Simulated assay, not measured.
Amino acid sequence: MPQGHGQQRVPHLVGYAPGVYDLFHIGHLNILRHARSRCDYLVAGVVSDEMAELAKGRPPVIPLVERLEIVRSIRYVDAAFVETVPDKVTTWQQVRFDILFKGDDWRGTPKGEKLERDFRQVGVEVVYFPYTVHTSSTQLRGALDALATRAEQG
Score class of each variant (00 low, 15 high):
residue 32 L to H: 04
residue 32 L to V: 13
residue 32 L to M: 06
residue 34 H to M: 15
residue 39 C to K: 12
residue 39 C to V: 13
residue 40 D to W: 09
residue 42 L to M: 07
residue 42 L to I: 11
residue 44 A to Q: 02
residue 44 A to H: 14
residue 45 G to L: 00
residue 45 G to D: 02
residue 46 V to S: 02
residue 47 V to M: 09
residue 47 V to T: 14
residue 48 S to Y: 07
residue 50 E to H: 15
residue 52 A to P: 00
residue 54 L to Y: 09
residue 55 A to W: 08
residue 55 A to C: 09
residue 56 K to F: 03
residue 57 G to F: 01
residue 58 R to W: 11
residue 58 R to F: 15
residue 59 P to E: 05
residue 60 P to L: 10
residue 61 V to E: 02
residue 64 L to I: 13
residue 66 E to P: 08
residue 66 E to R: 07
residue 67 R to Y: 06
residue 67 R to A: 12
residue 69 E to N: 12
residue 71 V to Q: 11
residue 71 V to M: 04
residue 71 V to E: 04
residue 72 R to L: 01
residue 73 S to A: 15
residue 75 R to K: 15
residue 75 R to T: 11
residue 78 D to K: 13
residue 78 D to Q: 12
residue 79 A to Q: 13
residue 80 A to E: 01
residue 85 V to H: 03
residue 86 P to H: 13
residue 86 P to R: 09
residue 88 K to W: 01
residue 89 V to M: 05
residue 89 V to I: 13
residue 89 V to N: 05
residue 91 T to C: 12
residue 92 W to T: 11
residue 93 Q to N: 09
residue 93 Q to M: 11
residue 94 Q to R: 08
residue 95 V to T: 03
residue 95 V to C: 04
residue 97 F to H: 05
residue 98 D to A: 10
residue 99 I to A: 02
residue 99 I to H: 13
residue 100 L to T: 06
residue 101 F to I: 03
